[in-house]
């Protein structure tokens, strides 16, 4: 394989309120390669969105990266001065958000917002940028791009806004596109269109896509590789095929069993994970899933990164190498 374009190493993000420091993630580690779609999956609060925001230095006032590094092309984004980060942000790495309404300025026309990045980063003149913007909108499947250019965000439907948002994000031909739940607010038939669009973008521009989602279905449809997060940590990663067809971590397995599918036996009860994510998980030593794990009783709770071959790894106890849950 080629070198990764982005490497996140033992990332620790903490939130501060007054003097109190609360770690949100630690031990987040993954690599992103050019031209691949990497899915970061986990339930709410697992730290997947903060991880994404931290890559672009968008944590805001309360959050801070307190450890680890984010290597983009070998340079550490964590230690990069704001000014230089500005050159990367929206240019080489760009992002699309779930909440499209809040990620566009309601008082500027789509056209103005779309061309802003190109004029700033690529130093394009307005007519040139506008021409490219129209082209981009057409490519994302907007039927009357000239009309959309003159529209304000509220005049477009959710699916249209997400398309415009994607056009905006790819305007400067980024090498990495971070998409945080880009289809969660959209209808299924529109979601399918947006997913196809992201895939085409990857194929045509060789863009690396970091896709953040809570939906295993989206992972199964989109991912080349998967990183599963639980309670602020990565617990499993590997190719989509090996993680989804042979999950090793009990959490990944539980997550997959909890999702109802259309062809499941409806008389069967859905599997649900007992208990909930511990609130002060950062203070726990060892495995954070232990209390909810079907193997928790017979496990020492001392996880290590197990190499399962083919780039598939899981952060679990080696003494359960048989890899089967106790309950089945």
């Amino acid at each position: 394989m080629t070198d990764p374009i982005l490497e996140v190493r033992d990332l620790e993000i903490s939130f501060f309120s007054g003097k109190k420091r609360t770690p949100r993630t630690d031990g987040v580690r993954f690599s992103l390669y050019p031209g691949e779609i990497l899915c970061l999956v986990g339930e709410s609060g697992c730290g997947k969105s903060v991880t994404a925001l931290s890559i672009l230095g968008l944590l805001g006032d309360a959050g801070r990266i307190t450890g680890g590094e984010i290597l983009f092309d070998g340079q550490d984004l964590v230690r990069l001065p704001e000014k230089e980060l500005d050159r990367v942000r929206g240019n080489e790495i760009s992002m699309i958000f779930q909440d499209i309404m809040y990620s566009m300025n309601p008082v500027f026309r789509i056209g103005d917002q779309l061309t802003e990045g190109m004029r700033k980063h690529l130093h394009m003149a307005r007519p040139e940028a506008e021409q490219r913007a129209v082209e981009l909108l057409r490519k994302t499947g907007i039927r009357e791009p000239e009309k959309a250019m003159r529209a304000y965000p509220h005049q477009l439907s959710g699916g249209m806004r997400q398309r415009a948002m994607i056009a905006m994000a790819v305007a400067c031909r980024p090498r990495i596109l971070i998409a945080d739940e880009p289809t969660t607010a959209l209808d299924a038939t529109i979601q399918l269109q947006i997913m196809a669009l992201l895939r085409r973008l990857r194929d045509e521009e060789n863009t690396a896509v970091l896709l953040i989602t809570h939906d295993i279905g989206v992972v199964a449809e989109m991912a080349d590789r998967v990183v599963v997060m639980y309670a602020g940590q990565c617990v499993e990663d590997g190719t989509a095929e090996s993680v989804l067809t042979a999950p090793r971590h009990p959490y990944t397995r539980a997550l997959m069993r909890a999702v109802p599918t259309l062809n499941m036996d409806r008389s069967e009860r859905l599997y649900s994970i007992p208990g909930q994510v511990p609130e002060d998980y950062h203070a726990l030593s060892g495995c954070r899933f232990r209390d909810r794990c079907p193997n928790g009783q017979r496990c020492a709770g001392k996880p290590v990164w197990l190499d399962l071959g083919g780039g598939h790894r899981a952060y679990c106890a080696p003494d359960l190498a048989d890899g089967r849950d106790q309950d089945g």
Binding site: A188, T189, L192, I216, G217, E221, L244, T245, T261
Partner: peptide, 23 residues
Amino acid sequence: LLDASPSADYAERGRKRIVLAGE
């Protein structure tokens, strides 16, 4: 609608389906 619903089953990836145009 059924075709558009993402399936958690990896084996169903790339299945033949109807992709609707428009909204």
